[in-house]
Computed example of a mutant assay.
Amino acid sequence: MPVTLIVLAAAYGAAAGLLIPRPAHRMAVEPEEEWRAVCPGGHPITGPARGWLGPGRCAECGAYGPGALPTAAVTALVCAALTAATGPRPELAVWLAMAPVTVLLAAVDWRARRLPDVLTLPLAVLAAGALGVVGRLTGEAGAWWRALLGGLVLAACYLVLHLAHPSGLGLGDVKLALGLGVALGWYGWRTLVTGGAAGVLIGAVYGAGLMIARRGAGKTAMPLGPFMIIGAFCGLLPGAAATP
């Protein structure tokens, strides 16, 4: 694996991660509330794309939400790891495009216990559409159809969990599962099962830890999105590395 490619991917991830705090702050609101238009200090959020793009710190008071350096570091690490595992194959471009969106989703869900449709649904469309292009260019149409089916299967599993326990698992998790399942399904059913099961297991371990620490995990909604994303990451890495 060329080190230069990994370094470039990490630089891209760091640059994308620096932009995450602003939209994370804007989106971290209750479902019935509108996106925030001011920083925590009350200063208007302005900039390109109606204020969605721009520095991760307010120019007036320096505050937004999650720190820009942590989000940059996490996104850079994710992009570098995906590049090292995937190599210079066409689907790498899809993983690098999805990575900042998933980090943003994890940040929003952790802060506000919600996964906005404006992120989850486009993520699924991005994964399905971009992998469709990759499948056509590489002649791997079968992998694309399996990816689509994988997204439907994982989303269906989470839908069943939602219907069984709606207070603990929301429809946002079901929609996120659709996009993650498409990505995991590209590398096969084993990768899909590994990534899906890892997300549930990691979330369960975290919830059990909260209960043991007597911090009211059973009374407070726990964000599942970050654990689903971490689990998918854990499944995607070995799936990509094992693909010739």
Score class of each variant (00 low, 15 high):
134 V>T: 03
135 G>K: 06
135 G>W: 13
136 R>F: 01
136 R>M: 08
136 R>I: 01
136 R>Y: 07
137 L>E: 12
137 L>T: 03
138 T>Y: 00
138 T>A: 07
138 T>P: 00
139 G>E: 09
140 E>G: 03
141 A>P: 03
142 G>W: 12
142 G>T: 12
142 G>Q: 10
143 A>R: 14
143 A>F: 03
143 A>L: 05
143 A>S: 12
143 A>G: 01
143 A>H: 13
144 W>P: 15
146 R>K: 10
146 R>H: 15
146 R>S: 13
147 A>P: 04
147 A>E: 14
147 A>D: 13
148 L>A: 01
148 L>S: 02
149 L>E: 06
149 L>M: 04
149 L>I: 03
150 G>V: 00
151 G>V: 09
152 L>C: 05
152 L>Y: 11
153 V>S: 09
153 V>D: 09
153 V>N: 13
153 V>W: 13
154 L>Y: 01
154 L>F: 02
155 A>W: 10
155 A>N: 02
157 C>G: 14
157 C>Y: 11
158 Y>I: 00
158 Y>F: 10
159 L>H: 10
159 L>P: 00
159 L>E: 12
160 V>F: 02
160 V>Q: 06
160 V>P: 00
161 L>Q: 13
161 L>P: 04
162 H>N: 05
162 H>Y: 10
162 H>W: 15
163 L>M: 08
164 A>G: 02
164 A>L: 15
165 H>F: 07
165 H>W: 14
165 H>K: 10
166 P>L: 12
166 P>G: 02
168 G>D: 10
168 G>H: 12
168 G>A: 15
168 G>M: 13
168 G>V: 11
170 G>I: 05
172 G>N: 06
172 G>Q: 08
172 G>E: 08
172 G>R: 05
173 D>M: 04
173 D>I: 01
173 D>H: 04
